[in-house]
Nucleic acid binder design. Structure first.
Lengths: 134, 134
DNA sequence: TATAAATTCTATTAAATAAGTAGGGTATTT
DNA sequence: AAATACCCTACTTATTTAATAGAATTTATA
């Protein structure tokens, strides 16, 4: 997992603690969660584009969760920042790509095993939510 | 998974088909498995250093498995080429690193979830062997 | 014993990705 | 009007990935 993705999880967890009452500023999140401030700004912007958070500009503004913490699946966030959950593109659901070197996917033993691994990882990632990491 | 690691799996599977009778040359493996030849050479060298294959130099030489296919765990190979199986360094068994930004690992919600994911991935990776990808 | 075949070793390279940093623009409150 | 805080684009630096190149070494065999 990239640091960007990890920081995103931590930022969401931070916002979840305040949900739904109030909002937080990037400077506060950055300080309390030990995330470089300018880097965090980019991350929160991505989370906003993804529809997970919203913001208020100007003095006294800040970020807040749009959805309840228990409705934000960890897998969705992972995909937003790091792409495929699968270890091989040919077993990916959302980022599928055919292997150039593999003539027959159905007969491929690697495909079979890493599909199993993807299945169980995906199951947990789509079952666990932001409220599970508080 | 890096291509290097995927190619390593495919090369091992190729050698496993001949085990224990005969050996294969890199040129043959490269051609039949669609792997760049010179790249494959480096990979086989790493597998040799890792103790999984052995080689015979000179005309008529080649590579062959040292261990039976069913004793080569996919997780070992993965670690040799791509390092940690875990998605976070702080939940890695063999490549553990403390998170600089996290004050308390035990209380960390991310740690908890990604430890679960690591556990189930590790279980499959150390249970499946080269003979499972033939 | 020369030659061809095959592995071994070292170095280099091009492209992509990761992890930030910088600086100004825009909106809002006081 | 000034301060605050998000918004946006660009840039940088280091690392990793996926090879490629070429020569050295070893071995079988003709």
């Amino acid at each position: 997992m990239s640091k960007k993705c990890k920081y995103a999880f931590k930022a969401l967890a931070h916002l979840a603690k305040r949900y739904p009452d109030t909002h937080c500023q990037t400077a506060e999140i950055a300080r309390l969660e030990n995330i470089p401030r300018k880097f965090l700004e980019l991350i929160l912007l991505d989370l906003k584009k993804g529809g997970f958070v919203n913001s208020k500009q100007g003095a006294g503004g800040g970020y807040y969760l749009v959805k309840a913490p228990e409705t934000i699946l960890l897998g969705e966030i992972y995909r937003l920042f790091d792409g495929a959950i699968a270890l091989l593109p040919c077993v990916s659901l959302k980022f599928y790509e055919k292997c150039k070197d593999c003539p027959d996917e159905v007969a491929c033993g690697l495909h079979r095993v890493f599909l199993q691994i993807r299945d169980q990882t995906l199951k947990l990632m789509l079952q666990k939510t932001v409220s599970d990491i508080l």
